[in-house]
Design a protein around this nucleic acid. Sequence first.
DNA 1: CTGTTAGCGCTTTCAT
DNA 2: ATGAAAGCGCTAACAG
Lengths: 339, 339
Amino acid sequence: MSRQRVTILDVARAAGVSAQTVSRVLNNKGEVSQRTREAVLAAIRQLGYRPDGVARSLVTRRTRTIGLVVPDIANPFFPEIARGVEEIAQTRSYRVFLCNTSERPEREVEALRALAEKRVEGVVLCGTRLPDEELEPLVADFPAVVLVNRLLEAERVDEVVLDDEGGMYRLVHWLMAQGYRRFALLAGPPRSYSSQGRRKGMQRALAEAGGDAELVEVIDCAPFIQGGQEAAEQILQAHPESDVLVCYNDLVALGALRACQARGLAVPRDIAVTGFDDIALAELVTPSLTTMRVPKQQLGELAATLLLERLAGRIERRRVVLGPELVVRSSTREWGRVG
Amino acid sequence: MSRQRVTILDVARAAGVSAQTVSRVLNNKGEVSQRTREAVLAAIRQLGYRPDGVARSLVTRRTRTIGLVVPDIANPFFPEIARGVEEIAQTRSYRVFLCNTSERPEREVEALRALAEKRVEGVVLCGTRLPDEELEPLVADFPAVVLVNRLLEAERVDEVVLDDEGGMYRLVHWLMAQGYRRFALLAGPPRSYSSQGRRKGMQRALAEAGGDAELVEVIDCAPFIQGGQEAAEQILQAHPESDVLVCYNDLVALGALRACQARGLAVPRDIAVTGFDDIALAELVTPSLTTMRVPKQQLGELAATLLLERLAGRIERRRVVLGPELVVRSSTREWGRVG
DNA sequence: CTGTTAGCGCTTTCAT
DNA sequence: ATGAAAGCGCTAACAG
C-alpha cells in the first residue's frame, strides 16, 4: 500500500485530461463526453483513487458531518437514540461524531468546541446539563443544533422533547384509577429537565384529585439503580404507608424493586413500583415493570431529521413534542384487584 | 452570528502580525515574545476566532479522527465498547465517527469507504461479517486498523480478541464439576467468529470428559432473545433429557429462560441455563444468569489504545487476548445440590 | 523572534 | 465539452 496518496491530478494525467474534468465526472456536474468519462473512470479504478474529503470540504465548506453529544452511551437510554440519529444521517451520506461526556458538563463544553473546530454542520445535543447562559454561546458556533429533552430559545436551534409532564400525569392518573392513593416519588436529579417535567405531572395529577390522594414523599436521587435503591430504602423506612413508588426512570425503579425485596415486600402485592422510559430491561425483570414507553429511536430519528431539514434551508424554529405511552406490566396491580 | 467565518488572517491583521505568528501561538510552536503572544490571544478572543480543523488537516495530513464500526449500537454488547473507545480517544484529542451497520455487510463496506474519504487515521472494526478477501483491500485504505473479535493477517492491523474457546471451556468444565452431564448448545450464528470459538471450547471440554458427559444437541440460532427462545423450544421438545442449556450469549439465554418458563420448567431446579457476555441484564433477570463476563469497556479501551499506539509509530503487529471470567448466579445449581 | 513564500487536494469561475 | 487560474484556511520551510 502506497503511503503517498493518489490525487485527482494523478488521475487526470493517467486519463489524459485536466483535473477539472475528473472533478466533473466525480460530481456528475457539467457535461462530459461519454468517451472521456469512461477514460476517467478507468483511471480512477486503475489507480485506486479516493477523493480527499478534507480537501473537498475545505473548498465546498461542507463536511457532511454532524455531532452527537450524549451523557453516557452505555446508559440504556442513549444507544437507541444514537441508532436513530445514525440511521437518518447515513441515508443522506452524513457521518456522525459520537461524543460521550460521562455526565460531565465541562466535557460537554470541550466536545462542542472540538466539534466546532471539526466544522461539523450541526449537532444533536442530548440531555445537556449546561445552563442557558453557557449553552447559548456554544450553540451559536453551529449552523444547526437540535436539543433533545431540553429547551433553549436561540436561533438555529430546534428541539425534540418528550412530554414528560403529560406522561407522568397520565401514569399517575391511571394509578389512581387502579386505586392507588399514597404516592412516593423517587424524583431523579432535581436539575434535570425531564425530572422537573415529571414532578409537575405528578403534582398536577394529585392536585386534580383533591384530597383524595396524597404525595407522601418526594425524594431526589441519582438516575441509576443505586440511586433508586437508596431512595427507596429511605422511603420504606420513613413512610411504610406508601402504596406505590413512582420512579423517575426504569433504572431507579429497578433499584426500588431491590429495596422492596430486601425488606421482604412483595411487588405488587404489598407495594407497587413504576418506571419511566421502557428500556429493554423493563420487560425482562421480575416483576416486569409498568412504565411509560419513550420512543427513543424515534427521538433520535426526529432529531436528525430536523437537523438535516435546517441544513437544507429551513429557517423557522421547530419544537416537536413526543408523547410517552403507558405500558402496563406486573409491577402494579390491575384494576379491581386493589386491596 | 456572522456566517462569514473569521480566519487566521483576520486575527493576524487585528493583532498587527503575520498569519504565521498567529499559527505559532495557536500551536505553541517556535518562540513568540510575550507581548505579541498576548496581542494575538487578545485578537483571537475579541474576534471569536476558532481555527479551522479542515484546513489544518489538509496541510498537516492528520485529522485526529478515528472510525468505530459496529453491527448495532443498540445491542447491549456494543455501547460499552464504544464508551471505552471514545474515552481513550478523547484523552488524546481524537474524535470518533460512529458507524452502525445494522448487521449488514454492505453497510460495513459503505461505512469503511466513507471513513476512508473522511481521511480518518484509523478504524476500530467490531464483529465484522466480511470474509477475509473482502476485508483485506478495505483495511488497506487506513494507516491503522484494530479488529475486535476477528482475526486477519494483514499489515497495519492489530487484533483484540476474546478467548471464546477458553471461556466456554472453563464454563463447561465448571458445569461438569457441578454435576451437569447432558449438554445442549444454543450455538449462535455459525459463521460468527465468537460462535466458532465457543463451540470449540464446548467440544474440547466434553472430549476431555470422555464418555462421562455428552453433547445432546447443538443448534444454531440468531444471537437474540427470539433466536434463543425458538432454539430452546426445539431442544426441550426433542431432548427433554438435557440438563443444561448452554447459550451463545445472554440474550439467547434469556430466550431460553422464557422457553423453559413456557413449558413449566423451573430454572435451575429442572434444567439449568447459562449465558455469555454478562450484559447488564444478566444479573437483573430472574433467575439471574450464570454467565461468562466479557470485559467490554476494556475491549474498547484496548482497541483504541492499540490504534493510537500504531498511529504513534509502532510497526509490529499485536494481538491481545482477553479472558472472560466466570460469574456464578442463580440459573445454575451449586455444587452439592445436584439432584 | 517574526515574516514571506509555497502548497496541501480539491472545486469554482471564467475562458475557449 | 474541456482547460487554466485562483483560492478555500492553514502550516512547513526558509529567510532574516
